[in-house]
């Protein structure tokens, strides 16, 4: 077993894990943060995307031990301090950017990472950035719109 500790959504957590314990399993099974979802086993669907030290990664394709000492943010850490939806989350609701909700946590985490790296993405850039996030419900149309809406809110100049 490996002793690990990290900050998850701003809170220090620690635990003893096996070498093979994935970050996704640590989050879901040990911390009961079940918003991070598992939709495939080949690292393609992106339902498990979280931020590790600020970067979007697939939590199912990283060992918990690799995140030792890291700052981890999951979907549970994306709402505002008062519990209201964050800008990206709110945009997803406003634009109907989700249906069954299963891919949604990963989509939101990827969208947030994109908008931090590129506050004014074009439609093509948004679609390309979502290469590693599969949605089966929405046809992506409203996800793209949600990200555009969030971009406009976060960087008002983008709307001009």
């Amino acid at each position: 077993m490996v002793e690990i500790s990290m900050n998850v959504n701003g809170k220090p957590v620690s635990g003893a894990v096996e070498g093979r314990t994935l970050l996704s399993a640590f989050l879901r099974d040990d911390l009961r943060l079940t918003g991070t979802h598992i939709g495939c086993d080949t690292s393609q669907c992106g339902a498990c995307v979280v931020h590790v030290n600020g970067e979007a990664v697939k939590a199912c394709t990283m060992f918990a031990a690799e995140a030792d000492g890291a700052e981890v943010t999951t979907i549970e850490g994306m709402a505002n301090a008062d519990g209201t939806l964050g800008v990206v989350q709110q945009a997803f609701q406003d634009e109907h950017g989700l249906q069954c909700g299963f891919c949604t946590p990963g989509m939101v985490m990827s969208a947030a990472a994109l908008l931090r790296d590129n506050p004014t993405p074009s439609e093509a850039e948004i679609r390309e950035y979502l290469e590693g996030n599969i949605c089966r419900c929405t046809g992506y149309h409203n996800i793209v719109k949600a990200i555009q809406t969030a971009a406009a809110k976060l960087t008002p100049v983008a709307a001009e």
Partner: peptide, 9 residues
């Protein structure tokens, strides 16, 4: 290569 999350790792 891959997708953004893959490129970060």
């Amino acid at each position: 290569i891959g997708d953004p999350a893959v490129r970060n790792r």
